[in-house]
Amino acid sequence: MLKNRLIAVILLRNGQVVQSVKFKHTNIIHYDPVHAIESFNRWAVDEIVLLNVSRDVSTKDFFVDIVKRLSKECFVPMTAGGWINDIAYARALLANGADKIIVNTDAYRNPDLISILANKFGRQCVVVSIDAKQNSSGESFVVIDRGSDIQQVKVGDWAQKAEQKGAGELFINSLDHDGNRKGYHIPLIRQISSLVSIPVVAMGGVFHWQDLVDGIQRAKADAVAAANIFHYTEHSTKKAKQYLAEVGLNVRQI
């Protein structure tokens, strides 16, 4: 039976691992991402997502070098993204050790990018990241460009379109929950999970291990992801995994 996945997200700004609070990346956690990936890889994490959150597009090539370096020690799937806007750059990431690619802003602006990438690399290779922002009446709208640009399109509509265009997986974060320590945006993720038939990854807001359980049981996500929390606790991913197993969730044991 397919397991629920635990995913560690590593946010990189100019090559340094940073913390995210509502998409602001001010705290540097590790100077060298190799340390982060070594521990995640050794411990119980099922997958690693590496995001280049730098606002400086010129970091693209440097990011490929980092992917290449990290992939040498990474024997779980690694998804990489940030600033992907064409086949050539996606191919560069895949050729240097990424197993999947993750797209957001450029895919929203040009949804055909998803189809182009899916046709080239297969849909299982293309993850579409969607960031959401709630308005005062509780409706969630798409936000692009690293949380800076709120769109008039509802998250559910974009999620369905991304699936039609060939997305193999959706990675859902909430600007209101990111780094906010109040757990995932459960209604949002549950809604998206019910709208699509591709896997859904929950992201943003994890502060207790129970938040991961809620992501799977209440929000119906297939995989649960977190960033900040994994950097602060020793053996964090192992403890998280143990917790998931103890409450009876179907997770990979190692």
Partner: peptide, 8 residues
């Protein structure tokens, strides 16, 4: 869900 994605 399809793709079949993850550990099995």
């Amino acid at each position: 869900r399809v793709p079949h994605m993850g550990w099995n």
